[in-house]
Design a protein around this nucleic acid. Sequence first.
RNA 1: CGGGGCGUGGCGCAGUCCGGUAGCGCAUCGGUUUUGGGAACCGAGGGCCGUAGGUUCGAAUCCUAUCGCCCCGACCA
Length: 476
Amino acid sequence: MVKGITKRSEDYSKWYLDVIATAKLADYAPVKGCMVIRPNGYAIWERMQAELDRMFKEAGHVNAYFPLLIPESFMRKEADHVEGFAPECATVTHGGGKKLDEPLVIRPTSETVIWSMYKDWIQSYRDLPILINQWANVVRWEMRTRLFLRTMEFLWQEGHTAHATPEEGQEETLKILNIYKTFAEDFMAMPVLAGVKTEKERFAGAKETYAIEAMMQDKRALQAGTSHNLGQNFAKAFDVKFQDKEGNLKYVWATSWGVSTRLIGGLIMTHSDDNGLVIPPKLAPLQVVIIPIWKSDDEKSALLNKIDSVTSDWKGKILFKVDDRDNYRPGWKFNEWEKQGIPIRLEMGPRDLAENSMMLVRRDTGEKTPMSCDNITREIPALLETIQKDMFEKARDYRDNSTYEVDDYAELKERLKSEGGFYRIHWNGKRETEDRLQNETKATIRVIEENAPKESGKCILSGEPSERRVVIAKSY
RNA sequence: CGGGGCGUGGCGCAGUCCGGUAGCGCAUCGGUUUUGGGAACCGAGGGCCGUAGGUUCGAAUCCUAUCGCCCCGACCA
């Protein structure tokens, strides 16, 4: 029925790209690894930004903007940071036709510029905490790219906070992790596992990295957001000290955290189907599309009049659009909006008009039900809630049904290969074991869940004792 | 960086083996009839065949070089 979209079962990767193309979310740019975010894709990002920005502000954060170009020497100030990012930095060596005295790095992340400024802004405990977020683009010279999931340039938000105590830093790190989890689950309808990363997976320069991990429909994991407790690493690298109440000079405690346009990739791979994009109502740039179906001009004006009166008080409550274009036929329009993932479609033709009803079609289930025009204004908001909830539950059930506990290494290897999914296993906590796991299975430790119950067991590789299970999976 | 594939109207492709001056589908433009799941018919516009050399009377096609892109792996949000 749907032309131009490869089935998920045939080629998942192709399907993903087809969904993006048919929904007009993004296009390849002239430069390899870069993408153009088209209006349909950007509209989703704007919805995400709006909600996240609100949540950050409610938690006391403010927005600022720091520059794109960073002196190369700044990147070298924190040892782990430079080691982690140097290989993927793009560097500006010339300006105005002249070679620069010092090359400028195009930010891959902004810790270093921001901390160079925090040094000037922080003197006293009274200056703390600093809770700043910025919406920005960053560039990382990736070897291999995929639309939304990994592009050379991407859009994100990066929060950078400074605190007087390690406790406050830790509290902030977890507060943000929780905001990310709430956003992913309540708005994206994308269930996530939240917890701490292993040392191997930790952000370059962080003391501890926390993350949310989601399962895509091919049962691979997607790291959807990270929140880092930076300890005093950056404060020491940039010499940022403050005087406490007792007059002692101390280094400040820091966090940084971010989510990116990768979330759009996660949204697509969590909910979309073989007919194209499916967007959860809370992030849909358009929640309801109304398609009048007419033959004569008289019918058209009668329908539009009725639709006007039905939707008269929708503005500000429901994001809707009446598709009354006369150069496209109804069937074409149905298909067009379906591919774009609009949650609800209302069809109204002369027959419906005579019965004072509309045909309502859910994008997520494809279910069609006639609905009286008298009830529709009341029913739609409730239905949008229902769709949002159903989408989350469907995704959660899918993940839970593909999450297993395994204690036998041979079985684990076999199942990772044949069926994929998330596996909760015992691990001895050692880096070398983790490396071996990755080499032999291609899977990585995604997260050590904060609320994982204590359970004594044996490491699945080494047989050494373990106190709790960790989640492993193949990832994007 | 390894493996695979591909560069031909806006998009998707055929033509390449076996050289003879470019074609199909979709899209676009005009017209008529249509309109409850991607409309039909008639007509029209649009391409130095990725680039640069070479062979030849003649190259999309053969040879050489080169550039680029996509997909799969290793690294990463």
